[in-house]
Design a protein around this nucleic acid. Structure first.
Lengths: 131, 131, 131, 131
DNA sequence: GTGGTCTAGACCACT
DNA sequence: GTGGTCTAGACCACC
């Protein structure tokens, strides 16, 4: 299946990061499977009205994180899933991401219950790994 | 009405953050109403024996968040809009932040249960608003 | 101590990668220690006659790999060393890098003995971790 | 002499690259000598159960690099060897490639001994030119 | 056509 | 001043 991108310019989350996030979520949700092609850098840039460099940067980070593979002159494809980071680093990164979310939640005046509810709802939608 | 600041130097929360919090709380509690003037950066700095930069930083953050307005040549005032973000804007921003966390979690191969547990643990540590 | 960069433009190794390599080697060799500042993006760009974006990209990759930390508005500093990757990923990356070297060596018609000698010589110069 | 291909599908290294590498290494190791014939694109594709395009792509790259020659109506042969690069150019390129490996090794927290061992092991696997 | 690199120059936010 | 992001447009290599 393909993937529908939704970009919010001028947000606190940089555009390239929004692209990264949406690809990672689509892969996690099974909307994109190993070997599936992604739109080309230029196509996606045109579609989202972005500079190709911005899309290329997003794809570059995904490649470096082992989420996708790029075959020169051919295109970009979803890679086979692997565990990339050591346990310590994994915890550290999760903590950073978590603090980022909670900081934003506090700024938006979310209560703890609202945060839990939002996380639950979105988790059901994207359907991460079961165990 | 005016506002009484209570600053605790050497605390874990940075001083500028204490100022931000107290202004935000005073506005939320109705102690400061729309259009009320705040002390100028210089006078507040003198009053609290703080570096003017510290106060300026606090005010800057409040301006960025739409809590206060600075009117050129006049001073600083509580902003006209109370709820800074309309509900949809609030949801949109939370949604973006949430996807950032979940995409990181997916990349780190966290299960849904692990994410929930991590969120719960951190929520208990940081407190957040009760409801 | 500071660090002397040497850039070879028009090489097969991209310029930003050369910067990345030299920082990582300098850190490994102890020429750069935890907390040491690196030159600013703009300074280094001017010094090496590169576009600031190219330097920023190199620094960005080093940040993502946990080699350096950037403090907004303050500068870039050598991070505390940590083991970032899981064992599998560590082996995989080493294999890739190794095959890259040997492929280049084969293309340059190096014998096995020449490769070993070159590796030994350079290892002594940079002085990796002892054990 | 002929050559036995060993293809690992689903690996991080693309299949065509595996073919390229193995031909290059076989030539470097002397298993394939100047003038030796290679299997045709069609027969090799059948033998390895690959798409002919994949093999053609690999051969194309090898032709461009001057490792093999395709003689119209006859087949594909190991090219007559030539030293492509002057000695200093050779050293300069090798030095850059070497630094790439060692910087990656440093980032992965490999010790000098581990690097030597890894190089040795891989050198034995691939052979390379004897002297 | 594809991805990858680099330059130039702009704007933002933090110190 | 600092780093970070984005756009625009160029050039290269591979297919």
């Amino acid at each position: 299946m393909s993937i529908e991108f939704q970009i919010t310019p001028g947000s606190a989350t940089p555009i390239y990061q929004q692209v990264v996030d949406q690809v990672r979520l689509a892969v996690a949700a099974g909307e994109l499977k190993t070997g599936d092609p992604l739109p080309s850098v230029r196509t996606l840039a045109e579609q989202l009205v972005l500079n190709p460099n911005t899309v290329a940067r997003a794809f570059g980070e995904l490649v470096r994180d082992g989420v996708i593979e790029s075959r020169h002159g051919q295109g970009v494809f979803v890679a086979t899933k692997r565990r990339v980071f050591a346990d310590d680093e994994r915890d550290r990164r999760m903590s950073l991401a978590l603090d980022g979310l909670l900081s934003e939640a506090a700024a938006l005046d979310f209560s703890a219950a609202e945060v839990r509810a939002a996380v639950d709802r979105r988790l059901k939608e994207v359907g991460l790994r079961k165990r």
